[in-house]
Structure formats: structure tokens, C-alpha cells
């Protein structure tokens, strides 16, 4: 009986393998198979030019490469994930998308070597739509210490939240924020992982607009941009992996 289950499992794995082999990565990344298995196993993946990642072709500062995801013309998006195939920490962020929060996000990330940076958005039917671009880099972004780890004063500034809101002509409210945190990866000798793990945006009434899960692949003192379909003040609250909380309230 056990043997039979093993055999069936083996057959299933083979089938899954075959199905995956059909998903040809247009970016021809050597890391795609691993990314596919880790983040999209058994799910429908479509490569779609409507999912765009803006990022420089070459990283000027491997500790803080700017990236911006924008999606045009895909409806019913519920999740947005940013992934760097060839970084030791592959997922940069993951967030909820809904009527109040557009599928757009600006961020800064670390790169260890030349890598694709991809955005994946999942619609309500479960399908993932992926787009991305390559970023070239000399490396070191993930395995070099943060500036904060050498700054005796960093603890006093931990948890600082700077932000502003812009009301745009298209009715969208842009939120930009900078959060003071070392975002240590844990990949540097004798510096443990220490990074912001969660961030929530809430409206005036305290209702959650979106929740983000963040990884240490995000740059030190992360800068994030969001496009909100709601007016009014926004509260930011988050927590790092040691339980420290951050809180801020930004008025239009």
C-alpha cells in the first residue's frame, strides 16, 4: 500500500514536472525552475507584458536598487509579489491588492549578483501574471553589513517614519514613506537578521487598506511608494522580527 502511494506520488510529481516544463521563462533565468517550484508550484503562471517592473539595467548602488511595479489592464488582482531570482533572499515583498490599493509599488532592494527582478500578481481566479526585468550588479548587496551596524546611534533612530501624500490628477493618492531600519539580512558574520517583517496601511477609521510582508532583501531604511484609490489620512504600522513596532500617521 505504501509502495503504491509512493508510486502514485512519483507519477504526480512527474506530471507536475511536465506541466512546469511547459512554462517557458521569457527572461531565460537560470533560477526560474527554483522560483517556480518555491512560489508557484501547482499554480497557473502566465508571462504578461502588462505586468511591468521599472528598474535600472545596472545597479549603481547594490544596497538600494530602485524598483517600481505597475500593472495596466489586469482586473481582479488580489496579491502582488516581488521576487529576485538569483538573490540569496528571493522574495522582496508581498502585499494585498484591492479596490483601495492599486497594483503598484515602489521599493528599493539589495542585489547580490545580476538577477531578474519580477513582479507577480494573482487574480481572484488564482492565476499568476508575471513580468520583470534584469538588473546587472557587481554584487555584495546582501552579504555586506548595513551602515547602521557600524553606527552607534542607529538605535535612537530605529522606528522613525517619514512619509507624505500626494493627491494626483487621476484621483489616485500617492503615498511615499521611508522607514528607518537596518534591514540586516543575517548573511553577514556576527550580525543577526534584523528586519521589518510587516507593514500595514490603514485608513482614518482604522480599516486595513493593505498588509505587506517584507524581507531583508529590501534596502536599509526602506523607501516605499503606494498608489491608493482612497483619500484622507493614512496610518502606517509595522513590526520587525524582534517585535519592535513602528507607527506613523500621515495627513494629506
Amino acid at each position: 500500500m505504501n509502495k503504491l502511494i509512493c508510486l502514485m506520488a512519483g507519477v504526480c510529481l512527474c506530471l507536475v514536472g511536465v506541466a512546469h516544463a511547459a512554462t517557458e521563462d521569457p527572461m531565460r533565468s537560470p533560477g526560474w525552475r527554483i522560483i517556480e517550484q518555491r512560489f508557484f508550484a501547482d499554480q497557473t503562471v502566465v508571462f504578461d507584458d502588462r505586468v511591468q517592473v521599472l528598474a535600472p539595467q545596472s545597479a549603481e548602488d547594490t544596497f538600494a536598487v530602485p524598483g517600481f511595479v505597475r500593472v495596466d489592464g489586469i482586473e481582479d488582482i488580489e496579491r502582488l509579489v516581488v521576487i529576485t531570482d538569483l538573490n540569496p533572499i528571493q522574495r522582496v515583498l508581498e502585499m494585498d491588492i484591492n479596490d483601495a490599493v492599486k497594483p503598484a509599488v515602489g521599493f528599493r532592494f539589495k542585489v547580490q549578483q545580476r538577477t531578474p527582478v519580477r513582479a507577480a500578481v494573482q487574480t481572484s481566479d488564482g492565476t499568476w501574471y508575471l513580468g520583470g526585468t534584469w538588473v546587472d550588479a557587481a554584487g555584495g548587496g546582501c552579504t555586506a553589513p548595513s551602515t547602521a551596524s557600524a553606527d552607534p546611534d542607529w538605535a535612537n533612530r530605529l522606528g522613525e517614519v517619514d512619509a507624505a501624500l500626494w493627491a494626483r490628477d487621476d484621483g489616485i493618492q500617492r503615498l511615499k514613506t521611508r522607514l528607518v531600519h537596518p534591514m540586516d539580512t543575517g548573511l553577514v558574520d556576527n550580525i543577526p537578521a534584523f528586519y521589518l517583517e510587516t507593514l500595514e496601511l490603514l485608513d482614518e477609521k482604522g480599516d486595513v487598506l493593505t498588509s505587506l510582508s517584507i524581507q531583508a532583501a529590501m534596502s536599509e531604511n526602506p523607501v516605499l511608494s503606494f498608489d491608493l484609490a482612497v483619500d484622507g489620512p493614512v496610518r502606517l504600522q509595522g513590526r520587525d522580527n524582534q517585535g519592535n513596532r513602528i507607527r506613523g500617521m500621515v495627513e494629506p
Binding site: 549603481e60 530602485p66 522613525e160 517619514d162 512619509a163 511615499k176 513602528i246 506613523g248
Partner: peptide, 20 residues
């Protein structure tokens, strides 16, 4: 490259401390 060099400081000046 210049955006990478110069923009971070310039945009910081547009943000204000909203910490609670």
C-alpha cells in the same frame, strides 16, 4: 545613474516625520 546618486536625498526632503 544620476537618479541613483542624487534622488534619494532630494526626495527625503519632501517627506516629513510622521512617527507616532
Amino acid at each position: 545613474r544620476s537618479v541613483a546618486h542624487l534622488y534619494p536625498d532630494i526626495e527625503r526632503a519632501t517627506l516629513r516625520d510622521v512617527r507616532e
